[in-house]
Nucleic acid binder design. Structure first.
Lengths: 196, 196, 196, 196
DNA sequence: TATGAATGAGTGTTCATTCAT
DNA sequence: TATGAATGAACACTCATTCAT
């Protein structure tokens, strides 16, 4: 236990400031549009400090991506209970994710930008490799109960996240607006897509 | 006088070379990773020549995007006949598009990169604004026949293109491979998603 | 006599258009700020045509300068009569020149810009080498009548043109405004400067 | 620890090197003729370093101009004593300035080039707006003593600096050479011009 | 003769990263 | 450990001039 705990650990605090500034600048101006100098200024730290926390720009972007993925998963699982029915879990995941993305457009935009950026080699391969145990369980139960189509989980996953991401993108860009009923309908449509 | 047309007009030929080199470099290295100098070298023209055909890098990217959209639409409509049934048209569009994207991964990647790039302002708004008359007719017929869910076409469209793009991305990245049967299944799933 | 004189000689007409456009662009944007392409566009002729009239940009600038000098001299001598008194000639030259410069600020600015530009080597040497016979006569008479200080004509000339140019520059830039009385006073002051 | 001050502070030293190289290149080749690359080479610093000291080329030129103005004023006031007679002050100012300009032709040329350059907008307005307190006092005394013509100081100033600049220009270009006697004569002529 | 597309060296400026302090 | 000035390769773009038509 830290006796002087009223002084927050400077190290992690700086790292946080840097990541926050990075999210803002990268989502608004892109990876190239945000220079390390601007980043340092926005974060309120000297440039050199960034390099003490991250090996370079690329690693910083990766680290931010990992954090975003983690946070998004946590949001997706908010209120999760293993005892919930398959359908209830589906609705929870879907609604949680949609709400999270629309509420945090910068986090969503950063992640999408990352996924499609040729900034880093072989990034796309990282898209689907990790699947949380809760989601794995969800798909496993669906197959076991004979509810899901017999397609590999990556494909079922694409049938859900595909429309969801597409619609969030359009919602953020103000091309379409989905009210509560629309969200429900789209969610139902996705359910139709993955079930027999 | 040149009776034979085997000497193509130099103007369009140069433009073609530039666009081809641009597609290759942009899809492989991104908008920032591909410099005008590298582009010129790849296209086999001096830098200055690019600026005779395009006002600048941004306009070049836009022009290439417009061409890609046009070509992809043409591919989507290959074999189209207005007399086809709703379901037949759906299958034609779906299969044509999937095949085109998987066959031309660079064209697909460029288009996706463009859509999510902060390189240009308000690009995302342009994603869905144009819809060909054939597609508009497709959705119109679907509503009229009471086959489609009563959701706006932008949403139905997202329910189709969302999974399709997601799966093409994964297929190109070798995360999943869809054989003919899988493609058929996913297409069916999309149909399930949009129909009542 | 040209029977077809109703069609103006195209050659000289184009040359005129080019020089007019050049005066406008050079005085507004400087020698470097005015590209040959913009010049051609402004003059309404193809770029290549400029090179048929002038060997290059440098020669064009020189030619324009020579023309400006010629025109300014003509303006200076407007109403000149060899029979006029020394003082009358002085006043005519002074007032004519001042009025011409203030009325044609672009012509004045171009000439000054030319004089001080390092664009061309050894240009300054050309400033004073030519003196019209009327001016030479003016100085000659002044010395002969014992009215002028015994200083070389280049120095007397500088005592007149120096203040004149300085004040025109300030007048054009709206730093000072010289009404008729002020002009008279400055002219008198210059007379005081050169006379014994 | 460096006890000796023979290691000058690197920061100001670099700035000095850059300004010195800038004076040389700008006065010899003009603002456009002197590229940042050549400037860096001449100054013995990498290009990027220039941008750490000056925001850009334009600011560098401005900074150099300000320094030249300051230095020239200091030279003009060399040996100044408020108790000196009006005439003595006039002669001090005139001779100091002439000597300074002829001794430092590059500084003179740079300043003239700056004044007439279309490189920067509204520069000419800055020519005369600042007048040192010593010069203001000089004109004030002249009016008070009834020695100067009743013309605004900007006009009297032009009657002095006009010929002076014109003659320095010609002297530098070797068109005229003013020996000590000539300088005295021209100075007297200027005095005649501004006094009643 | 008249044209304007083609040329490529050269421009001012930026930026991720390093390293002396 | 912490800093931020220094670095110089790389960038998008311009332009006077040429020359094939």
């Amino acid at each position: 236990m830290n006796v002087h705990s009223d002084a927050p650990p400077a190290k992690d605090e700086k790292r946080r400031q840097i990541l926050e500034a990075a999210l803002e600048l990268f989502s608004d101006y892109g990876f190239h549009g945000a220079s390390m100098a601007k980043l340092a200024e926005k974060a309120g730290v000297p440039v050199g400090t960034i390099y003490r926390h991250f090996k370079g720009k690329e690693e910083l972007i990766h680290a931010l991506y990992v954090e975003m993925k983690r946070e998004r998963l946590a949001a997706t699982l908010e209120g999760y209970d293993p005892a919930m029915s398959l359908r209830a879990r589906f609705e929870l995941f879907w609604m949680n994710t949609y709400a999270y993305c629309v509420t945090h457009p910068r986090k969503f935009k950063f992640t999408e930008q990352y996924a499609f950026s040729p900034y880093l080699r072989d990034v796309t391969k990282a898209i689907q490799i990790d699947m949380s145990s809760e989601l794995a369980r969800f798909f496993g139960d669906g197959y076991a109960q004979g509810v899901f189509k017999s397609l590999p989980p990556q494909i079922l996953s694409a049938l859900i996240s595909g429309p969801l991401n597409a619609l969030v993108t359009r919602a953020i860009a103000d091309i379409v607006t989905l009210d509560q009923t629309d969200q429900q309908s789209v969610m139902d449509a996705c359910w139709d897509a993955i079930t027999v």
